[in-house]
């Protein structure tokens, strides 16, 4: 497994654990109320799980498993590292914006995510092909 995939998959696992922790707090709170402010975690929960976990897990796995361009040739990995950094920063900005009431984080966070996805699409594009060239 290439190093970029290791980082993306492990980051995805962390988002998964944290996002579900937020969900578990809300679910507990829904059954046995602890503190109404826990509902502020709803957007954090959704963001970390859908983008931080599922999207990142899919992209990290794709980078690992799609047919290569040749022996150990994954494409220009620098694009991937930039995407990894942008995606995780973007998720954190959006995830923090609701509970901290920092609405200014929302737009830059989303733009970073879009840029990250565009970079990954560029990187993976030529690798969506038949095996064994």
């Amino acid at each position: 497994m290439p190093r970029l995939s290791v980082w993306m998959l492990r980051a995805a696992l962390l988002h998964f654990g944290l996002g579900v922790s937020a969900g578990a707090l809300m679910l507990w709170n829904k059954g046995v109320p602890l503190d109404a402010r826990l509902w502020l975690l709803l957007n954090t929960h959704v963001e970390m799980l859908l983008v931080g976990w599922m999207l990142q897990f899919a992209l990290g796995t794709a980078f690992w498993i799609l047919p290569r361009l040749g022996e150990r040739r994954y494409g220009d990995v620098r694009l991937g590292w930039a995407a990894c950094l942008l995606l995780n920063t973007g998720v954190l900005l959006v995830a923090l914006s609701a509970p901290l009431n920092l609405t200014g984080f929302l737009l830059p966070g989303r733009l970073m995510q879009i840029l990250a996805v565009a970079l990954m699409a560029r990187l993976l594009w030529p690798r969506v092909k038949a095996f064994a060239t």
């Binding site: 579900v20 969900g23 578990a24 707090l25 679910l27 507990w28 829904k30 059954g31 046995v32």
Partner: peptide, 16 residues
């Protein structure tokens, strides 16, 4: 309501 606490803890443990 306590059932939701049980559910939350089970899923939390499973995921970690």
């Amino acid at each position: 309501g306590w059932l939701l606490v049980v559910s939350a803890l089970c899923q939390l443990a499973a995921v970690w």
